[in-house]
Design a protein around this nucleic acid. Sequence first.
DNA 1: CGTCTGCTTGATGCGTGTCAATTTCCGTGG
DNA 2: CCACGGAAATTGACACGCATCAAGCAGACG
Lengths: 262, 262
Amino acid sequence: MRDQPYSLAAFADKLSQRTALGKDEREALLSLPHRTSTLPRATFIAREGECASHCCTLLSGFAYSHRVTGNGSRQVTSVHMAGDLLDIQNGASDVAVCSVQALGPVVIAHIPRSALTAVAKAHPSIAVALWTDTGANASILAEWLVRVGRLDARSRIAHLVCELAVRQKSSGISAGPCFPWVLTQEQLGDATGMTSVHVNRTVQILRRDGLLSMGQHRIEVSDWNGLCRAADFSPGYLQLGDIDMLPSSPVAICEMPHLMAV
Amino acid sequence: MRDQPYSLAAFADKLSQRTALGKDEREALLSLPHRTSTLPRATFIAREGECASHCCTLLSGFAYSHRVTGNGSRQVTSVHMAGDLLDIQNGASDVAVCSVQALGPVVIAHIPRSALTAVAKAHPSIAVALWTDTGANASILAEWLVRVGRLDARSRIAHLVCELAVRQKSSGISAGPCFPWVLTQEQLGDATGMTSVHVNRTVQILRRDGLLSMGQHRIEVSDWNGLCRAADFSPGYLQLGDIDMLPSSPVAICEMPHLMAV
DNA sequence: CGTCTGCTTGATGCGTGTCAATTTCCGTGG
DNA sequence: CCACGGAAATTGACACGCATCAAGCAGACG
């Protein structure tokens, strides 16, 4: 639909979250040359091994990165939300190191890699912000590794739910115990190193324990503290500062039609 | 012992590996204020949760980062070698997100975080290099996630061996099928999400298959192609360009007395 | 109203974990 | 130079979490 109203504001906001940026720097970011496009669910935004001359930023919706092994199994390496740079792992290489796919309908901004680098060189604070943001993403990846390597099935699912809850709250996408949920059980399995069958059984356990109820497009956390305990979750690794998850009204933001469609 | 002869050259080299740096930028890096220290094996270089006012660079030896879960199990999140920044995941936060420990005797350079940031702001190329390097590290973390989430025990061990072989060759630390090995089987298990008992059995299988022989301080890969096949290893994610592993003489660098001691 | 995708359930087996004991290695002190 | 001690490697028996295979069910959509 409408491709015009979307600016790079979400991207600039995300970058200023961890590193203070001045007015002119924000201006520079917003005036980056870019092309936006609205894509339906499951569209490939990048493909592992293909040339990546442009950087992609997610302006709206959710997406996920994944790699595929020789025997065909898939591992999800991150879940992206509004403001995220999608090809942060590519570094200087112009070959995509992982595939990125839309989890629902998304709005993407394509920025020429050279333009982003130029802005980074022209505005040192932006370069530092990009560095910082990439470091924080590495920290998240490290936590995913801990999750998959050392937690059992129940904790893994709970942990991912906690992470996405905090990140969505921090991004202003949701504010309460009820928030959009965009992963199928199979994708959830690919993110946590499990099979969809076992994900299913494990989610049922979390439901039975009264910790959450997970639907296809929304999730409701009934017992935040219990879920954190089950997940061995402490949000420090997200580097988002202090975030209150509790004193929040059961907001109605879970109804986000543009996220549900298609 | 001698703390003087060590310069930040290893750090500057590593940074220039993926992003070209000019002479003055290299100069700026080398003249960063820093304090070096030689530490024995197993020393904590950083502790999860503690304040991190300084950045640490590894000038010589090997180190590893790890996080500990609530039930006491440990997950290794990366293995560092000469030139690596040790606290890349900390981002702007001054709280360490993981612990770093020496794998053998190491030489460390402490650089005030503010000085590094200042140099990055003064030299845009350095800022971009730091960003790039951090992105490449995120890519490595993502591959570790794939390894732990989707490969079986044999492939996991083989994969880590392949990665460390390529990275050591790229860093000029080793050049042949025989190179220093600094991980105990327990640490190897913590890096691959397995128990030391199972690591032991799995290493024996790799030996029996004629792929490698692993000692306490050195490893010899007898069949590089076979090992890569067993590991489902393709080095693209390391973003190190093309690296020939084969046509190399069984160099004697595996004897590195300063790595073996204590 | 049929088809497709995602969710759910059951039966069965394998890959790892766990526990526990033993052996090898190597640095250290007598 | 040898004896000791502690850490790392090795081995075996057993248990269990999760994968696998296969089938059935429910909602979404044209």
